[in-house]
Write a protein that binds this DNA or RNA. Structure first.
Lengths: 226, 226
DNA sequence: GAATATAATCAATTCTTAATTGATTAGACA
DNA sequence: TGTCTAATCAATTAAGAATTGATTATATTC
């Protein structure tokens, strides 16, 4: 390497002798310039080479770091909700939630069961759709949590966030209050009963039937609107 | 309701007539006290009742909101990975991926199929484990994408991110290059073949068997280490 | 005149400080 | 004893200043 790569050579040497902090961050360009005694343009050229080689990554406002750029996994819920539709969401729920119910029948703790039963009671006495939906959300979340699987619960949370962000249009019943004989009442009670009795197959089946009912209602409303 | 519940009655009445902002936030306690003309203690009792009923939720520094407490969806991949283990991840994969494979058999496009076949070829000729894993990642991601379900694909991505972040310890084979008779070869080829032939049941079954093999290998290694 | 160094500026991010807010405690009052 | 008021605490948010990589303009050097 000749003088044309002086900055690069010097930078590599400095990186080799200096052990960096745990996060792999190296000093800002304005400091490195003084440390290495090169101009900022030369330093940036050298950094660009190393970045191109995948040895470091940079970001405005953050700094320069050794290693490979961390993958952005924070695929926003809103972005997903904009590219999907209620039917896809229901399909995903039909895959996830029966399994969660089955696992909940195995692993649910006493406090989980108490919470589920309270949700069912609250739903029966709900005066508004908002109260009804609150209880519904809490119940399904409790089932997920009771499964005991951290990953599945996290996936359920993301699915749930997408569900709430998706545009459901006029699919929702807009009457003032939930009817006293709403189909979900019996299904939710059967679900909680199955989980309480540790009946895995029943918990799976009841949840599956429940979500199929919800899905079929969805399709019926849609075809009626078209 | 008598005077003992005056604050609760007044609060409910105020909530009924007043339409709240879109985020469901209601004024801070210090303001509500002046609006309703009740003492802060009474107000907090009334709020506690409504919170217990699940009609609102509160948090220090944030405020008081109508609706059910939002789940921590910010659960970053790293946070999940720290609280889970390889077995939970495999369980989640066993639930998600066979379904994705079945849907892929229905909805995969020509470019999806080409990509899958290329992955299989790349895996056969992989010189290093890194190349092998790259092809493996791409294949499974292609199956998810080919399912055509945006939500399921997003969930797969999150699961995949967790899988890569989880500490697998010495479960990985550390030999220099993948063996030429690695069990995954045949399974992956059978998977791609089933999807190409639009055989939904076979695609589901092959993926399930594949992941069970992976899981069993995992358990075997673990019990050997103990 | 071309190339490079230096300075100025921009935009994204982080840091710092103050203000807000629900929760808790202590004292006054009846 | 019970309730109201005030003070205080702890968690969060809001806003402005300071950083930092990227870009552009100006000056310098050979």
């Amino acid at each position: 390497m000749d003088d044309a790569d002086g900055a690069l050579t010097q930078l590599k040497a400095w990186l080799a002798q200096r052990d960096l902090p745990s996060d792999g961050r190296l000093p800002p360009e304005r400091e490195l310039v003084e440390i290495l005694g090169v101009s900022r343009g030369e330093l940036r050229k050298a950094l660009a080479v190393l970045e191109c080689d995948g040895e470091l990554w940079r970001h405005v406002g953050k700094g320069t770091f050794i290693g490979s750029r961390p993958v952005e996994v924070h695929s926003s819920v809103a972005a997903i909700a904009n590219r999907t539709n209620p039917l896809e969401v229901m399909q995903a729920r039909l895959i996830m939630e029966p399994v969660l119910a089955r696992e909940a029948a195995i692993n649910a703790t006493g406090s989980h069961l108490e919470g589920m039963q309270q949700c069912v009671r609250l739903q029966r006495t709900a005066q508004t759709w908002r109260q009804y939906e609150n209880a519904d959300n809490r119940l399904h979340r409790l089932v997920a949590e009771a499964s005991g699987n951290t990953v599945l619960t996290a996936l359920f949370d993301q699915l749930n966030a997408v569900r709430r962000a998706v545009v459901w249009g006029r699919l929702r019943d807009e009457s003032n209050r939930p009817p006293t004989n709403h189909y979900s009442f019996a299904q939710h009670e059967a679900l909680v009963a199955a989980i309480c009795e540790r009946d895995q197959k029943a918990a799976f089946k009841v949840m599956q039937n429940h979500l199929r009912t919800v899905r079929d209602n969805l399709l019926q409303h849609r075809s009626a609107a078209e």
